[in-house]
Simulated assay, not measured.
Amino acid sequence: MTGGAAGIGRAIVERLTGDGWAVTFVDLDQEAGSAVATDISERGGACRFECADLADRDQRRGLVARTVEAWGGLKLLVNNAAYVGARLSLMELTEEDWDRVMETNLTATAFLTRDAARAMHRGGGGSIVNMATIQELLPLPTHVSYVASKGGISALTRSLAVELGPYGIRVNAVVPGVIQTHGMAEEREHVGLGAAVQDGNQPSLLPRLGMPEDVAGAVAFLASTDAAFVTGSTVTVDGGRSLSRKPDPLAEGLTTRTGQPKQSPEPQQEGTAR
């Protein structure tokens, strides 16, 4: 899987290894990724870590092949890693930033899936789970490249379900809502809000925020034999956020009093994405 060093990604790695999966995960953060792999291995989980920048095509090559070699086959791919990019309006966005977001989020997902599908076909089938975003329906300002890339993930999921189904390969997507991660807290502080969403202000129908383990549970279901007849589907894990009509917990900080988007020049990696 991709993006497993923190937040939702780490919760997925911990859930899958706890369920008995042997997991290779990829992340850009060498220190954090190594720490996660060591922690899980010391608890008896089967886990290995590779540090790679998914926007770098040379670094992506061979990831699937090495995973197959390490574990003797491949039955599951979780495309979780995401790059949000600089918080800029479309009028300020550069082609370089757009390209990096697309390469990390959409292109890497497509071609890692291609490599995984070849291995799964040889092994008699498998499951692919892609991470989409609630922002496809409820976009925030200054997230245009991220939202576009994740909208592409949803379309890619449906297309691949049609194409890979005859080979016994299921392809589904998970759509997280507002999930309480360290990255979310940092983003709220960066745009001038408190780190924590206050009680009573949860942007969902339920009286709490989502946790990374909630998303991990949906991924584990789609990976399991309980979902053996599920493909081309989307599992939304948002506590009813898309129905709640409540303001987004970042919206106030991302927009000034004049209605213009605030700039956030520091790009963010997986963790604040949803």
Rank of each mutant, 00 (worst) to 15 (best):
M1G: 03
T2E: 04
T2S: 11
G3W: 11
A6R: 15
G9F: 10
R10N: 07
I12M: 14
R15T: 13
R15Y: 08
L16G: 08
T17W: 03
W21S: 15
W21C: 14
F25H: 02
V26C: 04
D29K: 01
E31R: 13
E31G: 10
A37N: 02
I40Q: 11
R43Y: 06
F49H: 10
D53N: 15
D56L: 12
D58K: 11
R60K: 06
R60T: 06
R61I: 04
G62K: 04
R66M: 10
A70W: 03
W71A: 12
K75P: 00
K75A: 13
K75E: 14
L77V: 07
A81M: 04
A81T: 04
Y83H: 15
V84C: 02
G85F: 00
L88Q: 06
L90W: 03
M91E: 14
M91D: 14
T94A: 00
E103R: 02
T104G: 00
A108D: 01
A108Y: 00
A110T: 00
A110R: 04
L112E: 00
R114F: 04
A117W: 05
A119S: 12
M120F: 06
G125Y: 00
G125E: 01
I128D: 06
T133K: 03
I134A: 15
Q135E: 14
L137W: 12
T142W: 01
V147S: 05
A148K: 10
A155Q: 10
S159H: 13
L160V: 09
V162F: 12
I169D: 14
I169Q: 14
R170L: 02
V171G: 15
A173W: 05
A173H: 06
V174R: 06
V178W: 12
I179E: 08
T181D: 06
E187W: 13
R188I: 09
E189F: 01
H190M: 10
A196T: 11
V197M: 06
D199C: 01
D199T: 04
G200L: 06
P203F: 04
L206K: 01
M211D: 03
A216I: 10
A223C: 06
T225P: 01
D226H: 12
A228D: 12
T231P: 04
G232F: 09
G232S: 11
G232M: 10
S233H: 15
S233A: 15
V235L: 15
V235E: 06
R241F: 03
S242K: 07
S244C: 01
K246H: 04
A251G: 00
E252D: 13
K262M: 09
K262E: 08
E266V: 15
Q269Y: 09
R274N: 14
